[in-house]
Design a protein around this nucleic acid. Structure first.
Lengths: 105, 105
DNA sequence: CCTCGATACTACGAAACTCGTAGTATCGCG
DNA sequence: CGCGATACTACGAGTTTCGTAGTATCGAGG
């Protein structure tokens, strides 16, 4: 029953890592996500450090600014995280095809 | 730029649907997620109706009670949602194999 | 039709949390 | 060292969620 890595830690890690991948400062990420430029740095910092939790709307805007699906930021399992990113790169038909093979036992 | 279905609506929908799939009442879902039995019904109801937002820790416990990955509850895209559920059913080696094929352009 | 149990839902004030403000600390480089 | 950019934080105000205490609705049985 134990062993559940806190989602908040997962969120922090994925947020920071995705930001660094996009080569954005905390401030610029916040601005790109539509936050007031005067508070962008402060708020992103608090989200990455786990001091505060953003609401869902903010999470979605962050994900958009980071060019990742919102779900990615909550993927505890590393393999699932990679799959989410890879899946997004596929065309609609490729997605359908992949689903067809994976969903059938 | 418009067209972003609110994540909150997605969350509400997936939460409710997953609960019905597990054939749980709002109350029982809350209890299974570790909420005080006296407030379980109230709180789950508010989450499903979008009146309040649960914090991340609560979301994770809800996902566990619903037997879905936390990320699933935030998957805006229907195909991605299905993929997340299907992916979880795979063995470790199957996941690795699938990733290998999908991650290579 | 009417009641009863279970399920779904809601108003209200108290408690908990995030917010903006106004900074300080640290890092990289000339 | 000094400067600009980036990272980080204490504090009170404002917002949000919380528990309490219900009411509304639905479905089956009498």
């Amino acid at each position: 029953m134990a062993r559940k890595v806190d989602v908040r830690l997962v969120f922090q890690r994925r947020l920071k890592q995705a930001r660094l991948t996009q080569e954005l400062s905390q401030r610029d990420l916040g601005i790109n996500a539509g936050l007031d430029p005067f508070v962008a740095s402060t708020r992103i910092n608090r989200y990455e450090k786990g001091i505060h939790e953003p609401d869902m709307a903010t999470v979605a805007r962050l994900a958009a600014a980071l060019k990742v699906p919102t779900a990615y930021l909550f993927a505890e399992d590393e393999r699932l995280a990679r799959m989410i990113l890879a899946f997004e790169q596929l065309s609609a038909t490729e997605k359908d095809q992949l689903l067809k093979t994976v969903e059938n036992p």
